[in-house]
Nucleic acid binder design. Structure first.
Lengths: 346, 346
DNA sequence: TTGTAAGCGTTATCAC
DNA sequence: GTGATAACGCTTACAA
């Protein structure tokens, strides 16, 4: 086993000084061509690679980005990460991942763990619990220490930092408009409670779309799901609510759900109840993922372009780190949504 | 903006030496109680946190694990990561992610990037291209430098390192046995080409299960999918093959597919052709994921316990890093598979 | 009880 | 053209 070789060892072996080796390897013309080639040959032979940690300490930058997300077993977030990773790697950065599991404490711990020199900046999406508690001290502290943050998707408006978001309201409007255009007149909404920002915005989009088309929203057509750590329970509860809704409101001919899973759940129940999709029931979901694509029938969705969100977040962060952009100026990038028409709409 | 405070600054401020501060913070009783509390109070006030990079350099360990996987937008891999992350965090380690995108070059680059001091050890699943090229020099070099590797799922048998695998053959046998037990007599197999190890093993399991039940395998019932970087094309091609197969072999009453997507694809076509599932067509997939769970009807699968694989991998790596286990002794952990019976089997 | 100095691996500055 | 030295932030053996 040959341990990693260091400058010191090369210097000793070749009987020159460490600084000579260092310069020779960077091909400095301070050093004679003779020495240079000798050193370089030796380094190559022993497969010398500079130690990143030493470089980080010296340069006060690690060339790595910290990413904190609520969960990773989630199509949207893993897509965002793949976007971040792609852009980061292109620009010579590594990516270190922390999971908050939607917990405030884990988010704080993860941030503290990474903020002590391990990374140059954060890209993150805020945990639900944090949003609920509205305790943002860890973000403020990080920013105060001069470490830049880019928030994506679940952002905190009042914090001064770069942000990458989707136009949730507009996305919803597109979805609902599609349903209306294809002839739906009684469109149900399946959304989350309002404290999750995106749920709130998507609900607004639904309402506005109806109003713009002179349709009076009826609260009896809206289900607001209480989220549960145990998804099974959440979905079971939702199933009952949907079933009751469809039994009571026979006129429903369209459903807009704020995420794939709610939409799939609704579709399953509708199919069981004998609805023909999309003939007498159309469905659109926010958030495009594998589930929608491979469902039978495949679901029409609003795509959030997650990969693009990741890329954009990384670009913004790295630009700031490399001072290509004014340190004090914060931007909010809005990523477009697109309607993907598949088999649940006419 | 208050930049991060260092030992040096505290020392200067309090007019003591750096080492006194260092010791005081670690509550060494070498230092007078008076000084200790003074230093600790000051450190607390200024929210002092030791710089991880400096510690890493000093200790020659970073307390971070490098994970290299083929893709992250993939239920199995993201589950494994969540397992790794959980165990790593419990033991005070961070996780840094590299994606190979199934490419040999990207795998090599990622490993080289991280192997230069950034991490203490690797957990990885080998890229398909690497498997195909059978060029493993980057693994050998890493191990030679004294950096431990744990391979999971897609492993290279000939490399001496710890491994965590699933018993693919046995898992397949369970799946096929289930089909046979529930009355299927003509079971089709949808698998990958043999160079992907898991595809090969799963095929073997299928064959053995048939033989053990005195059923003669028929090659006409087997589809070997040519994988394609463009999944769309891969699936389109597969759709045609399945359709042709079902048209030709009317007696098929069961399908075993080596992954979810192949199974879903088969199911879609079978449904279109008027088969009733599971009444006259049963389906089981290897690999449990969201797709299976939420498909309509929901798919019976063989679960690989991905989270457990991740946890186990992390445990093995960290045990080795912390020398709780013999450095020279390599183990292969086999994770059990379980049959999850849902609505596509009787 | 406190401080000095060396060392982790690297690079930049300056002296020879 | 080469090398000694200091510095990045921290710990620790040893000296005072």
């Amino acid at each position: 086993m040959k341990r990693k070789v260091t400058l010191k060892q090369i210097a000793k072996e070749l009987d020159v000084s460490v600084s000579t080796v260092s310069k020779a390897l960077r091909n400095s013309k301070e050093i004679s061509l003779d020495t240079r080639s000798k050193v370089q040959a030796f380094a190559k032979l022993y497969n010398y690679r500079p130690n990143n940690i030493a470089l980080s300490l010296k340069n006060k930058r690690t060339k790595t980005i910290g990413v904190i997300i609520p969960e990773i077993v989630h199509h949207f977030f893993s897509k965002v990460i793949s976007g971040i990773e792609k852009e980061a790697n292109n620009r010579g950065y590594n990516v270190i991942i922390g999971l908050s599991n939607e917990s405030f404490d884990k988010e704080v711990i993860n941030i503290e763990m990474l903020a002590n020199g391990s990374i140059d900046g954060f890209i993150l999406s805020v945990a639900k619990e944090t949003l609920l508690l509205q305790d943002y001290h860890h973000f403020y502290e990080t920013i105060n220490q001069g470490m830049p943050i880019v928030m994506f998707d679940r952002v905190v408006n009042e914090i001064a930092c770069d942000k990458v978001v989707v136009d949730d309201k507009l996305g919803s409007k597109k979805a609902v408009a599609k349903l209306i255009d294809s002839g739906c007149e009684n469109i149900a909404l399946i959304t989350t409670k309002d404290y999750v920002n995106v749920g709130k915005l998507r609900t607004q989009g639904y309402l506005e779309a109806l109003e713009e088309h002179k349709i009076t929203p009826k609260s009896s057509l809206i289900i607001k799901v209480e989220e549960n750590k145990d998804k099974e329970i959440e979905i079971e509860t939702l199933e009952k609510e949907i079933s009751a809704l469809l039994d009571k409101e026979k006129s429903i001919d369209g459903i807009f759900a704020v995420n794939e899973l709610y939409a799939i759940t609704a579709m399953k129940i509708a199919i069981n109840k004998g609805y023909k999709i999309p003939e007498n029931m159309s469905i659109v979901a926010f958030t495009d993922g594998v589930l929608s694509k491979h469902a039978i029938p495949s679901l029409s969705t609003i795509s959030q372009h997650a990969v693009e969100m990741g890329e954009k977040s990384a670009t913004m962060l790295i630009d700031k780190l490399e001072e290509l952009v004014d340190e004090e100026k914060y931007q909010t990038e809005v990523i477009n949504t697109t309607l993907i028409e598949r088999d649940t709409t006419r």
